[in-house]
């Protein structure tokens, strides 16, 4: 039995050792904002925050989150920083098919939480592990910089 916190709620789930965190969240617990892409740690679509750090859930075994805090975008629905990010993404057209969006929002959230006014270079580094096959990244990077400015104006 794996016991962990998912978006602030306690969860106990009978997960075999061979189940990935991605499958436990998405297939078993129905958290479909966590996307299944490459399953190799390359694309970032399955990104979640574990104790606040972005990690790719496809290469983590479900029992490895025992006692940890797992957070998906669902857990940040009411979070002020996440709200700014979402709005900036919508206004700048940073979402096309949306497959990469939950993962990128989580990477961006972790960046702005720890670094209120990142440089463009720092934004690029933060989302290096999130592949977007639609937008070409420009609108995404601008959105993250916009959100930073709204949260912490000069």
């Amino acid at each position: 039995m794996v016991n962990f916190e998912l978006n602030g709620a306690h969860v106990s789930f009978e997960a075999p050792a061979t189940m990935t965190l991605l499958d436990m969240l998405r297939v078993e617990l129905g958290v479909t904002s966590v996307k299944k892409g490459c399953e190799q740690g390359e694309c970032g679509a399955c990104t979640v925050l574990i104790d606040g750090y972005p990690m790719t859930s496809c290469i983590i075994l479900a029992p490895q989150v025992e006692g940890r805090h797992v957070c998906t975008i669902d857990g940040l629905a009411e979070n002020p920083l996440m709200k700014e990010l979402r709005e900036a993404f919508m206004e700048n057209g940073a979402v096309q098919c949306g497959f990469c969006t939950p993962g990128i929002l989580l990477s961006a959230y972790a960046l702005l939480r720890d670094n209120k006014r990142p440089s463009e270079e720092e934004v690029k580094t933060a989302i290096e592990g999130n592949i977007c096959r639609c937008t070409g990244y420009v609108a995404i990077i601008e959105s993250i910089l916009d959100a930073a400015e709204r949260i912490a104006p000069d």
Binding site: P54, M55, T56
Partner: peptide, 9 residues
């Protein structure tokens, strides 16, 4: 090394 996600893990 890798990406933020990989460096965290």
């Amino acid at each position: 090394i890798g990406s933020v996600q990989i460096r965290n893990r």
